[in-house]
């Protein structure tokens, strides 16, 4: 092997440089792991320190990869930059997969801000009890999922700690172990009464807030002669009923004239 086997490949050079930065950033973590100085898994503070360290390492990896990809000077909203950050952000792990419904609900509940028109109203709405309840339930939900992640960490450390041979293994193998344990624990968590109850409460709180918000907005609309969602929904209901009636009548006429097949099942207005 020559000193610089990739001299003719600048991309590989850049990649190796990035990998080196990545490994340098990780070195303390894996060194601790290989030396057996594992944190006390029963101590939440130590777990927290470990999790923070992993986050820091991932941020280093992001910086290295962004530099390789020429993304370091791109604005934060750059799609590639955002994608890379998402891929390398362990915090995403605590949102995606287990918290999807919560996130979707929050997005649906919060809706689009109308800064000039509705800002005052929105600020007032956000001060309502429903908003506070939603936030509280969301926090409690996160606490349940956070406990699951803590269990993942504990199991991971226990497994790696028990198997001395695995400590000398390569990070990729540890990553696979991490994923397997995470999958087990998250699936187990999803079926726990504690989780289902927390999720149910988030759902209710989100919907209650949405209902309150709608009533307030509809009041505002009514005072300004703007059609409300409820009125449009009423219209949809009326149109639906009329469609069924028209359809039933047309079908009766057509059957009488023998231009359509008769149906044995003639319920549903058909």
């Amino acid at each position: 092997m020559s000193d610089k086997p990739t001299a003719s490949n600048p991309l590989m050079d850049a990649w190796l440089a990035g990998q080196k930065a990545f490994l340098d950033a990780q070195a303390p973590f894996w060194q601790e792991l290989s030396q057996g100085s594992l944190p006390d898994t029963s101590d939440p503070d130590q777990l927290s320190i470990l999790f923070r360290r992993v986050n820091e390492q991932c941020r280093s990896l992001f910086d290295a990869m962004a530099a390789i990809g020429g993304l370091e000077d791109e604005p934060e909203e750059n799609v590639a930059r955002q994608t890379l950050r998402r891929m390398l952000d362990p915090m995403q792990f605590s949102y995606a997969g287990v918290d999807e419904v919560n996130q979707v609900l929050l997005n649906l509940v919060e809706g689009t801000d109308v800064p000039d028109l509705m800002e005052l109203e929105r600020q007032r709405l956000k001060a309502t009890r429903e908003w506070a309840v939603l936030k509280r339930e969301g926090t409690e939900y996160r606490a349940v999922t956070a406990m699951a992640w803590a269990r993942v960490y504990r199991r991971f450390l226990e497994e790696v700690g028990e198997d001395l041979a695995s400590r000398t293994g390569i990070p990729y193998q540890h990553f696979e172990t991490w994923l397997r344990i995470a999958n087990d624990e998250l699936i187990r968590m999803q079926r726990s009464e504690e989780y289902l109850d927390a999720q149910r409460r988030v759902l209710r709180a989100g919907l209650n807030y949405r209902e309150r918000e709608r009533k307030l907005i509809e009041n505002w609309c009514e005072t300004r002669s703007i059609p409300t969602r409820s009125e449009i929904d009423d219209l949809h209901g009326i149109v639906y009923g009329l469609r069924k009636e028209v359809r039933a009548l047309k079908r009766q006429v057509a059957e009488r004239h023998g231009t359509v097949r008769k149906r044995v099942n003639t319920a549903n207005g058909t």
Binding site: F22, S34, Q35, I68, R167, T168, I170, P171, Y172
Partner: peptide, 17 residues
């Protein structure tokens, strides 16, 4: 136990960059 991970093996597995 206190030896650093083998760089080459690490690169092989993180070579997806």
């Amino acid at each position: 136990r206190n030896e650093a991970p083998d760089l080459r093996s690490v690169l092989e597995n993180f070579g997806t960059a």
